[in-house]
Design a protein around this nucleic acid. Structure first.
Lengths: 301, 301
DNA sequence: CCTGACGATAGACCACATATATCAGACAAC
DNA sequence: GTTGTCTGATATATGTGGTCTATCGTCAGG
């Protein structure tokens, strides 16, 4: 059975006239007659009682045509939705973001994104890198903002910007008297995030992977970590975009001697069909973060 | 767009595997790939993200496939209904019957009809001949039981049985003393039905078309007419099947000299597709009325 | 009787769905 | 590495079937 034939039958039912129905369907009258007869044969039911003067649906025909109408309407709804879905810059886009980036980056780019891509509904999802990659691979996310390289031929990585790390110190800390802080000097009393956060590994690596005290703090969020530093419990290493919040908390910030930092990437599946949306987001974030990157390069965070 | 392609897409969505989906659709895998790609091109939307290892619907695809599923389900419902409607002896059949026949014939045949054609739901409709023919021509009825020939090439007439007329007399009437009554003798004080009833015309014609007294009764039903005769207001001529009721009302019945009667016909549109149902009804009524016709032929009503 | 309108039918043509054969990439086993 | 297997994509030939034009049969109106 064919949707086309159903449309033909519905046209006949509506106009009760083969010629006019055929014209409306953009086919010839003989074609309409033939196709309708074939449909009736396939169904085993006569849909219309016809004479030279009249075309009237049978009782069974009325009932069957009601279903045909439902089928055609569903198909039309599908076409209409397809029309609306054609634009890759339209519709939902589920974007994963690591927790040490989301609270500081989103306020900078969410408004501009909405302005530039008004039909793109970005749905942020905050989680650690491994969880985001897992969700990306299972199609529960469409893209993710990470601070690590994503391996594998199934994933596509777009570099967005480099975010420098900063030493975060209690104001009264010895190192706070220096203009620059050597990464290794943070090691003795460094506080870090819980397992799974990429920032934890990167911070430790920058300081030469010191052994941590047993039972040392494993902060569940960067916010907690900052409060601990502000309270004087130790030092840490924070991403540049968190500088504002850290300063407001009364923390002393110093650039690092080796200018270590992390590269923020937009990762997506290579097969994801709405590449245009990914590219648009990447471009906008790059543009938006360019001034920050410049100033960071000069240590003016 | 084609229902077939929608089924293909739904099979892929369900199995997330081209090969197995193709097998289920009884087509080859290349065909499925090609058709799905064409569907996506037609819609302008990628329905599935595919790699060598996985096939996953896109978000837009999920939404579109929901509509596709609705369309396919409607089409399947149509096919199922067609299957059920295939039997012409199944379903509703709107049967018109003239008022001077319905009350006496229906009790004889309705039960047997239900037994013989259990899936045929006969919907009786009582009205005078012209109204029934009008409804027949406008497809508001499928068939009609009439006592007159229906003209026109659009109508088909099946004779069922001949119903003899009987003289109906008050018991004390002069003619009641005779074994047979001559039709013309009923003329002087004959009572008839209202305009439109074929029995009125036939009764008057049988009696030689006598002029009626001004303001004479024009009974709205045969039942009323019988009560008037029973009350001694005059004579009339009744159809044979009403004999029982008339006798119960205390009316004297006598066969007529010229054996006048009326031919009961089953009329339907020549184009009506469920001819088998019409024929089955006609056959059953003929069979059921055969004993009556025999006895009537011998005047043993 | 002729004319016009309508749906049905016949025959030719062409598009398109289909199958077979093959390719290209990814992954696992050895 | 190398090979084998599985995946979906692609190429090409083929046959079904939807479409057209031309024509018929029927009925109603002038």
């Amino acid at each position: 059975m064919n949707l086309r034939d159903l449309r033909y039958a519905l046209a006949v039912a509506e106009h009760r006239h083969f010629g006019r129905a055929a014209e409306l369907c953009n086919i010839s009258q003989p074609t309409l007659s033939t196709q309708l007869r074939k449909l009736e044969e396939e169904l085993g039911v006569v849909l219309f009682e016809r004479t030279n003067k009249s075309v009237v649906p049978t009782m069974a025909g009325e009932a069957l045509l009601a279903h045909a109408r439902a089928a055609v309407e569903s198909a039309d709804a599908m076409l209409a939705l397809a029309q609306a879905s054609r634009d890759p810059l339209r519709g939902r886009l589920r974007l994963g973001i690591i927790p040490t980036l989301a609270p500081y980056l989103l306020p900078l780019v969410f408004g501009p994104l909405r302005d530039a891509l008004p039909d793109l509904v970005i749905e942020p999802w905050e989680d650690v890198t491994t969880a985001l990659l897992e969700r990306l691979r299972t199609h529960e996310l469409d893209a993710a903002l990470l601070a690590t390289d994503a391996e594998g031929p199934d994933l596509d990585t777009q570099p967005l910007f480099t975010e420098p790390f900063l030493a975060a110190l209690p104001p009264e800390h010895l190192l706070a008297s220096q203009d620059h802080v050597r990464e290794e000097d943070l090691a003795p009393d460094i506080l870090v995030l819980a397992d799974g956060h990429c920032l934890r590994d990167q911070a430790l690596a920058a300081c030469g992977n010191p052994g941590l005290r047993a039972g040392a703090l494993r902060a569940s969020s960067l916010s907690t970590l900052l409060n601990m530093v502000a309270a004087g419990y130790g030092t840490t290493l924070i991403p540049g975009l968190a500088a504002g919040v850290a300063r407001d908390a009364g923390i002393a910030l110093r650039p690092l001697t080796h200018m270590t930092g992390r590269d923020i990437q937009l990762v997506s599946r290579t097969t994801f069909p709405r590449r245009a949306a990914i590219d648009a987001i990447a471009t906008l974030i790059r543009t938006r973060l360019a001034p920050f990157a410049d100033s960071a390069a000069h240590g003016e965070v």
